[in-house]
C-alpha cells in the first residue's frame, strides 16, 4: 500500500451511482407539471372506466395509447390502503425522522400512489385513514414536489 509523506494511505472515494436523466413523456409530464404549478393531482381514465393515479400512458386492459384528454383531476386528499412504519429512515427518504410509507388512493382514483406519511407516531397510522399532501417549498416537476402526506386532521 502506498503511503504519503504523513504516513497516510492514499484513498479514493467510490460513489455508486447510475446518473441517468429521463424524459417524463406526455402523461407523467402533465401529472408532474400540475403538481408543480398548481398543487393539483391528475389521474387517467381507462377504457374500463377506472381512474389510475399516478396516470399511465397505455391502457392496461386494451393496450391502446391513452391521451392527455383522458386525464382528470383527483385528490388532493386520499385514503391509506396499506402502510408500514419505518423507525429508522434511510438516506434519501422524504422524511428524516420515523415515518410511514403508505399506498395512498387519492379521492376519485382507483389505484394508489406510494409516498411517505409524516404522522409523528406509529400509533396514528391505520389502514383507511385520511391523508392530505404537503407540497415542497421549491418544486422542480418531480415526485419530490410532494414533500410527504400528513394525517387530514
Amino acid at each position: 500500500m502506498q503511503l504519503n509523506d504523513h504516513g497516510e494511505s492514499l484513498c479514493g472515494q467510490h460513489v455508486l451511482q447510475y446518473p441517468y436523466r429521463r424524459a417524463t413523456g406526455p402523461i407523467l409530464g402533465r401529472f408532474f407539471t400540475e403538481i408543480r404549478d398548481n398543487g393539483r393531482f391528475l389521474g387517467i381514465k381507462t377504457s374500463s372506466g377506472s381512474v389510475l393515479c399516478p396516470p399511465v400512458e397505455v391502457d392496461p386492459d386494451t393496450l391502446e395509447d391513452l391521451s392527455v384528454d383522458d386525464l382528470q383531476e383527483v385528490g388532493p386528499a386520499g385514503c391509506v390502503t396499506s402502510w408500514t412504519w419505518l423507525s429508522e429512515p434511510r438516506p434519501g427518504n422524504p422524511v428524516q425522522r420515523p415515518f410511514a410509507w403508505a399506498l395512498i388512493k387519492l379521492d376519485g382514483a382507483d389505484s394508489a400512489l406510494l409516498h411517505a406519511v409524516d404522522a409523528g407516531s406509529e400509533s396514528v397510522m391505520r389502514t383507511g385513514m385520511r391523508v392530505i399532501p404537503r407540497f415542497a417549498d421549491e418544486r422542480n416537476g418531480g415526485i419530490r414536489d410532494i414533500a410527504c402526506f400528513v394525517p387530514e386532521d
Binding site: P54, R90, L114
Partner: peptide, 13 residues
C-alpha cells in the same frame, strides 16, 4: 424511476 425510486422506498419497507 419517476414515481418511486426518487423517494428511496427500501426493499424491506
Amino acid at each position: 424511476p419517476y414515481l418511486e425510486t426518487p423517494l428511496w422506498p427500501d426493499a424491506i419497507s
